[in-house]
Amino acid sequence: MTSPMGAKVVSINPLETANARWLNLVQIEYLTPDGKTRQWEAVRRITKPRDSAADSVHIFAIRRNAANEPEILLEKQFRPPAGSVVIEFPAGLVDAGETLEECALRELKEETGYIGELVPVDASPMVMWGSPASSSSRTVFINATVDVGRPENQNPVTELEDTEFIEPFWVPLAKLHGELRKFAAEGFAIDSKVGVFAEGLEMAKLLQA
Rank of each mutant, 00 (worst) to 15 (best):
I72N: 00
V196E: 11
V194H: 02
V140N: 04
E164S: 14
T32S: 12
G178Q: 10
V10H: 03
S131R: 10
V10W: 01
A198S: 10
T139Q: 13
F165G: 00
S192G: 00
P90C: 06
F78W: 13
S84H: 11
I59C: 02
A53T: 04
V86D: 09
A144F: 04
V9R: 13
D162T: 06
L74K: 11
V194T: 06
A18C: 00
E110W: 00
V10T: 05
V140S: 04
F89R: 09
V57C: 13
G35V: 00
K8W: 08
V26H: 03
L108N: 10
S137Q: 13
E199M: 14
A53Y: 09
E71T: 01
D147V: 01
I190Y: 05
M203T: 15
E159H: 15
N143T: 06
T139W: 09
G149H: 12
C103M: 01
T163R: 09
S135T: 06
G6N: 15
G130A: 09
G116A: 11
E152L: 02
R45L: 02
E202P: 00
P172R: 15
G83S: 12
L173Q: 14
T17A: 15
D95H: 07
R106T: 13
V146L: 08
D122N: 14
V85A: 03
A54I: 01
G35W: 00
E152R: 05
V119L: 04
A185S: 14
L180D: 04
G195A: 07
T145Q: 04
P168Q: 05
V9K: 11
G97S: 08
M203N: 11
L23V: 13
P80C: 11
A209I: 02
A7M: 15
D51M: 04
F141R: 13
A54W: 02
L100N: 07
L31S: 14
E117D: 12
D55T: 10
M5P: 00
P14Q: 04
A67M: 07
P49S: 05
W40H: 12
R44A: 15
F141M: 14
I190M: 14
S131E: 12
E101R: 14
G130T: 04
D147N: 14
F89W: 12
V127K: 07
A82K: 12
L73T: 02
Q77R: 14
A91R: 10
I87E: 08
Q27F: 00
E152P: 01
W40C: 01
P151A: 08
K182Y: 09
R44N: 13
V26S: 09
F165Y: 14
C103Y: 01
V86I: 08
E110C: 07
L173T: 11
E199I: 15
S124W: 11
G187F: 10
D147P: 00
H58Q: 15
W170F: 10
Y114H: 08
S135M: 04
L180Y: 06
M5S: 13
A82G: 02
E152Y: 00
C103A: 15
M126P: 00
P14M: 07
V119A: 05
M1C: 11
T145E: 03
K76F: 15
K182M: 11
G97R: 04
T158Q: 15
Y30Q: 03
L207C: 04
E41T: 10
E29L: 06
L100G: 08
R38N: 11
P168R: 02
N24A: 09
E69G: 02
A189I: 03
E164N: 10
A42G: 12
